[in-house]
């Protein structure tokens, strides 16, 4: 099997995987990075949302070969050590999470949105497709706005 080397949450990692193995499973099953969650495997639920070179991707449909030499950030790599990212802080303040399963993906999607636009409108927030089966959307919206204000 081929080896792929990439930056993962600030560290260089090498993984031995088939080229077309979805990154989600390279992360979870081979590298033990379990923050990105499986919810559908086909780019629908967005629970696995992570970043590739700073942009939101869905690792469940991203072949591992595609990230070679690039920089992958999962929820585990968002905080700066013990210092949480402002979006994570806003999530805590609004007490967003219920079961929490969608939240790594929601937070990574929100961070990517705030990178594109520092002051998102309701319509832009509506474009976030991430499913939250527990129904935390109201608090997610508030948290994104609070994080935008803080950043």
């Amino acid at each position: 099997m081929p080896n792929y080397t990439f930056q993962l949450n600030g560290e260089t990692v090498t993984v031995d995987a088939p080229a077309d193995l979805p990154l989600l499973w390279a992360l979870r099953d081979k590298l033990g990075v379990t923050g990105p969650k499986y919810g559908c495997g086909i780019d629908v639920c967005k629970a696995c949302t992570s970043h590739l070179d700073g942009e939101a991707i869905r690792p469940c449909v991203t072949p591992t070969a595609e990230v070679a030499g690039r920089e992958v950030t999962t929820i585990e790599g968002l905080a700066d050590g013990d210092r949480l990212h402002p979006v994570q802080e806003a999530w805590l303040e609004q007490d967003v999470a219920q079961c929490g399963y969608c939240q790594p993906g929601q937070i990574m999607a929100a961070v990517a949105l705030l990178r594109r636009t520092s002051d998102p409108t309701d319509a832009e927030i509506d474009e976030i497709q991430n499913v939250c089966r527990c129904g935390t959307y109201v608090r997610i919206r508030e948290a994104i706005k609070a994080a935008a204000a803080r950043m």
């Binding site: 099953d29 929820i75 949480l84 967003v96 999470a97 939240q103 790594p104």
Partner: peptide, 28 residues
Amino acid sequence: TNRVDARAMVTGQQRYTLDLDVVPGALP
């Protein structure tokens, strides 16, 4: 009162069943 497990959830540290590493060699 905010959730006691909120920090684990927003940092990806909350462990759900398939995140557990409890049985060495357990196969997908």
